[in-house]
Amino acid sequence: MGTALAFPFEMDTVVALSGVRLVATHYGLHNSIAGVGIALGNLSVGALVGATVV
């Protein structure tokens, strides 16, 4: 639900910050950075859950 609400604003922000030049490249970079952040978050939470389960 949060992603569906944030997506229009996210896309508009990427377009505005790219200066309407190489929009797809900027959007791909944004998705790559977001993907790394998501992966690191999942690994961190998994490590914490794994450490608490004995």
Rank of each mutant, 00 (worst) to 15 (best):
M11R: 08
N31W: 08
I38M: 13
L40G: 08
T13W: 05
A6D: 03
S44F: 06
E10Q: 15
G28P: 01
A16I: 01
A4I: 14
H26S: 11
V36Q: 10
A34D: 07
I33Q: 03
G50H: 14
A34L: 11
V54P: 15
G37P: 00
A39C: 10
L17G: 00
I38G: 06
L5D: 05
D12Q: 13
T52S: 15
L5G: 12
N42Y: 11
L22K: 10
G46E: 08
G2W: 12
L43M: 15
S18R: 00
L22H: 13
R21Y: 00
L5Y: 07
T25Y: 10
R21T: 06
L40F: 08
A16E: 04
V20M: 12
G50E: 02
A47W: 02
A39Y: 14
S18P: 05
V54Q: 10
Y27G: 01
G50I: 07
N31Y: 06
L5W: 10
A39F: 09
S32Y: 14
V36L: 15
F7Q: 06
T25K: 09
A16N: 14
T3I: 12
L17F: 11
L40M: 11
G2C: 07
P8N: 04
H26R: 04
H30K: 07
G41S: 14
N31S: 12
P8L: 00
M11W: 11
F9Q: 05
V23D: 02
A51L: 09
T25C: 04
M1G: 13
V45M: 07
A16D: 13
R21L: 04
N42K: 08
G41M: 04
G46A: 08
N42T: 15
T52Q: 09
L29F: 06
V45N: 01
L40Y: 08
V14T: 04
G19R: 03
N31H: 03
A24N: 13
V54G: 06
G41K: 05
L29G: 02
L29V: 13
T52M: 12
T13E: 02
T13C: 05
H26L: 01
T52C: 13
M1N: 01
S44V: 08
M1H: 07
I38T: 10
A6Y: 07
V15G: 01
G37M: 07
A34Y: 06
L5T: 09
L43W: 05
G37C: 05
G50R: 06
G50A: 02
G19L: 00
L5N: 03
I38Y: 04
D12G: 13
V14I: 15
F9Y: 15
H26N: 12
S44K: 00
F7P: 00
L40K: 07
I38R: 09
G41L: 08
